[in-house]
């Protein structure tokens, strides 16, 4: 089993601290991450996340100077960014590549994948390793997943990622999706897990058993909402089952450093996020289910999920 691991802390963790990692921390984080055995460090969004946010911090902008600084630190072969195609223009991908990024991940909304697939084609022409992230994959019918994955493969993507943005996938569902995508694309399949239900680890294991070979995780699980697959647990697991290229000591050192340096990295499971994950609702619905009485939250979420299903 040859897994490719991406550390997404600096990017997904940015949702916790408004992407305000300072450059010195980002440099050290990236270096330790590679030393611990990560293949890629996803260092930032390029020009913002899904929803525009004013005054984004370093890892929400992904400026060329930042890319260059991290590439100098860990080598371009480890530097990746993620982007929403609507946020960039034709000059961004060449500029990112010139600055020292070699992996780009393109968020593909299943509803309108066309523009994103154009971005995939351009990224391949520029010379990137390209991942397509099928966002909110838990809400997509299997047929749609197949359709978009196949189109992404035709556009030249190297990896199709199942992005469990809502943190709603169950292991069996994850395995089915991984198997499905694996059967229709010639490239690799990856998983970006969120831990709303505490199932990120189980889903990661199920995905790998079903043939996924790329895996996202974040240190201390630092990511949107309850966070992602916990990197140190994932690396410990891989080390335990015979991975010989991981350094658990360095991994834990990095987790300790992040915890001491970035207070917002403290693991948490906000109860509303558990509710969102349970009912497969996106984070945009958080306001709709917010209630001081969690019984009312669950009631509201059930109603919303029922309406969506109906």
């Amino acid at each position: 089993m040859s897994l490719v691991n991406i550390d997404v802390t600096l990017r997904d963790g940015g949702y916790r601290n408004r992407f305000e990692f300072d450059l010195d921390y980002a440099r050290t984080h990236a270096r330790l991450s590679v030393a611990a055995g990560f293949d890629w460090v996803e260092i930032a969004y390029r020009k913002g996340s899904f929803k525009p946010v004013a005054d984004l911090g370093l890892t929400g902008r992904g400026d060329d100077s930042y890319i260059a600084a991290i590439a100098e630190e860990i080598g371009p072969e480890h530097v990746g960014l993620i982007l929403h195609p609507r946020n960039i223009d034709a000059g961004d991908l060449p500029a990112m590549h010139r600055a020292g990024a070699r992996l780009v991940r393109v968020c593909v909304p299943a509803g309108d994948p066309g523009p994103a697939l154009d971005t995939v084609r351009q990224a391949k022409e520029v010379g990137f390793t390209v991942c397509v992230n099928l966002t909110r994959v838990s809400q997509l019918p299997a047929r749609k997943v197949v359709e978009v994955a196949a189109a992404a493969a035709d556009a030249g993507t190297d990896v199709v990622y199942l992005a469990d943005s809502n943190g709603s996938l169950l292991p069996a569902h994850t395995a089915r999706l991984a198997t499905l995508v694996k059967s229709v694309v010639p490239g690799e399949v990856g998983l970006h897990a969120h831990n709303n239900l505490g199932l990120a680890m189980s889903n990661a294991m199920a995905a790998v058993d079903a043939g996924a070979t790329w895996m996202d995780s974040s240190v201390l699980g630092m990511g949107k909402g309850p966070g992602n697959l916990v990197a140190e647990q994932w690396i410990a697991y891989l080390d335990r089952i015979g991975g010989d290229r991981y350094d658990l000591g360095t991994m834990l050192h990095l987790a300790d450093l992040l915890g001491r340096s970035v207070p917002e990295s403290a693991p948490s499971l906000p109860l509303p996020d558990l509710v969102l994950g349970h009912f497969d609702l996106s984070v945009e619905e958080r306001g709709s289910i917010a209630h001081s009485d969690h019984r009312q939250s669950v009631h509201a979420a059930r109603a919303l999920a029922g309406a969506a299903a109906g």
């Binding site: 100098e72 630190e73 050192h253």
Partner: peptide, 9 residues
């Protein structure tokens, strides 16, 4: 080796 990985490029 671990120290070098952590601190050198």
């Amino acid at each position: 080796t671990r120290f070098a990985k952590e601190n050198l490029t």
